[in-house]
Amino acid sequence: MEVNQQISGTIFDIQGFSVHDGPGARSLIFLKGCSLNCFWCCNPEGISKENIPLFYASRCIGCGNCETFCPNNAIQFIAEKPVIDRTICEKCHDHSCLDNCYTDALRMSGRTISVDELFSIIQRDRQFWGSEGGITLTGGEPLLQIDFAHNILKKCYESYIHTAIETCGNVPWKNFELVIDHLDWIFFDLKQIDPKQHETGTGTSNTNIINNVRKLNETFNGKLIFRLPFIPGFNSSRENLAGIASLILETKWKEINLLPLHHLGRNKYQLLGLEFKADKFPIPSPEELQTAKEIFEEFGLTCFIGQDTPF
């Protein structure tokens, strides 16, 4: 497939000097849209593939402009505060509500960007990465906007830029097939080995994800590190960890990175008018994490906790 520079994607951030998602200092590109709906997600604004408004209640002065200017009646004022039906906003390309919110209480999460424009930003950033570094596509699930992801990865790879993705794995195999030749590194999330439990936590069974792991093992020759968001009470049992370890042992890769649950995304749920369910789950203690690490080590795997990684 030819690289088509007219292709655009929807992203919700570009973050320079990111130091935990691959070798060196990197530029992270956050693509919108996800095929899972994990209750602990720390970037909930990335789940919808469309641009959606975030509402900063503390900045709202209750002027009512957003309600007045909304062409689709998505906003209703209740108790002097706007109540937003974001399912309507997702289909809307009129930004009058934002333009007329003079205190910036409403801000758009997400913007459309062409491959060309994104690549020119990457070209700028690469001057500052240093001797290592590169890009990491994340999100959201970066392989959902597959044309965009494919084009940007190919362009970077051919320009000698180190490429990585951080994927939940829940995409059609053909999406992986398209990009694996242009990838140096994959962070692959594993959350639950039990399909039912997986569905409870993420809205989807893990069958496709596990299949993709096995296929990647056959076809992908780059570096792959598994990541496990560690959530006490959801996936912290010895049984689950052993199951995940067994799956990993089927592959040629031997590293797993535990990402302890945190509650720092809570604020974003408020901005989206959503309930933050992860509040009910405790942040893991260092001891719990150490125990989990030891379990993986029993299986002969190398396990890193949080940001304490060798890359």
């Binding site: 973050q15 992270l28 956050f30 951080e166 939940c168």
Partner: peptide
């Protein structure tokens, strides 16, 4: 995804 987006 677990990359932690800047909120500064």
């Amino acid at each position: 995804m677990e990359s932690k987006k800047i909120e500064c």
